[in-house]
Amino acid sequence: MIGLTEVYALAGAMFAAFALFSVRDRSNPKRFGNGAFWALLAVSFLFGSHLGDVANGVLVVILILLGGTGAMGRGSVERTSPEERARRAERRGNALFVPALLIPLIAVVGTFTLGRIRLDGAPLADPSEVTLVALALGIVMALIVALGQAKAPPQAALDEGRRLADMIGWALVLPQLLASLGAVFALAGVGTAVGHIATTWLPLGRPFAAVLVYCVGMALFTMVMGNAFAAFPVMTAAIGVPLIVQRFGGDPAIMGAIGMLSGFCGTLVTPMAANFNIVPAVLLELPDRNAVIKVQIPTAIALLACNIVLMAVLVFRY
């Protein structure tokens, strides 16, 4: 059965190759920093489950110090000029899109089918992890097709991937680290403390005030945690259920649905949601790390106002 362990092993092998190619990139003045960073990530993906919590913690701290103190750099030269790439693109035509579109196609089809395929009675893919297994399968198939089209060896693809990884740099582990910080927050009781403050210090005597504090609280708390999923249980237990539903007789389904979407308005404007806001800025080579957030701020504010009005109008009516 193919599950997360196998997909992690694939990722670990990829990062190990990145480490090797990074160290060999003489155009990067900090090539050993990059090499060490990717090597540690490879160790985490290959052996993380056998290391123990403290060893994993030490690994995380070294990753943070390598990435956070400027020990990583980038190679200088792009291997091909824009003119050269334009010539290749002209020759290859729209066939270039095939592998790129194959990835989402296989990921989606695989999500719905892989869990049902059985070999000797056991499912081919772990049904609980089928989305990630299907994504990995889509990527591998697309890579095979792309290598065949380009008549290139696998090392070429790994080195191109390494070039992109060096460009993204430490931001590559930012989403995973922020998710880990969320776990530490939960352990330390940060959420409970926020809920306590919201209920004791804010005026919640009228239905509209409760809706207002709940929706704005979802957005603000999501901004802090970087994730509406972390904010939802706290705000709903503190304000949503006891006040909106129990005291003022609101509908729990409407409260839950619009409450979560108010949290998503917060996700649009926080650097804590790095995989949505910071990583795209890095990937698109924007000099301002917060450029995507700045574009999203007006939409987020207008939509949060809409959510407050929608909930106030609908939640006590149905």
């Binding site: 997909v7 694939l10 990722a11 990829m14 291997r79 091909t80 790439r85 334009a86 010539r87 290749r88 693109a89 002209e90 290859r92 270039l96 592998p99 790129a100 990835i103 994504l135 990995a136 990527i139 697309a142 890579l143 792309a146 290598l147 089209q149 380009a150 290139a152 070429a156 693809a157 790994l158 080195d159 191109e160 991937g161 390494r162 070039r163 992109l164 990884a165």
Partner: peptide, 13 residues
Amino acid sequence: LILPVIGLLEHEG
């Protein structure tokens, strides 16, 4: 995991 395939395709234009 997507980086190698996207990198290769970008190299190809």
